[in-house]
Amino acid sequence: MGMIRAALLASCLFSPALTSAKQLVLHGYLNPPYVMQQDYSLGGLWIDIINHLQSDSEVELIIELHPLRRAYKLAQTKPNHCVFAIERSQSREAQFAWVSPLSISRYALFNADPEQATQPGLSALQGQQISAHFGSGVAEYLRSFDMDVVVAKTPEQGAKLLLRERVQVWASDVLTAAYLRQQLPLPQNGVEFFSSVRSIACHPETDKALLQPLQQSLDAFYQSGGLAKLLQRYEQQYQLSMGL
């Protein structure tokens, strides 16, 4: 995938420009319905939140889309560059400066066999192959419990492994699963097993004067109930409840 660079508010594509000291560059990746390309603009839950942060904090934010690995690498190597949104975890804590939480994700296990679909506890998964997509953090999580995990490049590829019976179980966040269910004949009910805090992760030497107003705007968005309303809109659109 080629790089897509978008100035927020205008939400349109334009040529790469030099980053000024007052700008934060947010490197994201296509991940519907969190980040979606809609004709010549970007949409999705995370884009909506970032749009709000830009207008509220007055920090200038530039979004660039890349494959996730590249986005992650850029945030690791350049001050004032960030990746969104990745799981904030103990192992990553020291590597980045964080604006957090951008969203909470609920992960579930979707089983092709309806008889197996409601067994709780990870130990019930022993001996089964599970697909999970790269970047979710869930593949690593399940592997740490000695689960047999096939890592797919995208959520859609992970889902298709289930549909083609290449794996018995598909692990996905429930919002992504609901989005993909509009296009693919995926199982309705998953067994929830994990929640993650997904955040904007910035190079550790990123200017605090840029991060602080962004965090304050994010906190205020939660406290005002604005973010909960935005989330409800997505829940209604995709007909699910995340129990938040």
């Binding site: 904030r88 975890s89 103990q90 192992s91 804590e93 957090s100 939480p101 909470i104 709780p120 506890g121 999580y141 929830e192 097993f193 994990f194 929640s195 805090v197 906190d219 939660y222 406290q223 973010l227 909960a228 129990g243 938040l244």
Partner: peptide, 24 residues
């Protein structure tokens, strides 16, 4: 759903619930 995660993640999640008011 009894989730297991690293100790720092437990604290971060508790902090996130206090910060956002969402019932994680």
């Amino acid at each position: 759903i009894h989730e297991l995660t690293s100790e720092d993640d437990v604290i971060k999640k508790l902090q996130a619930q206090q910060q956002t008011g969402l019932n994680i």
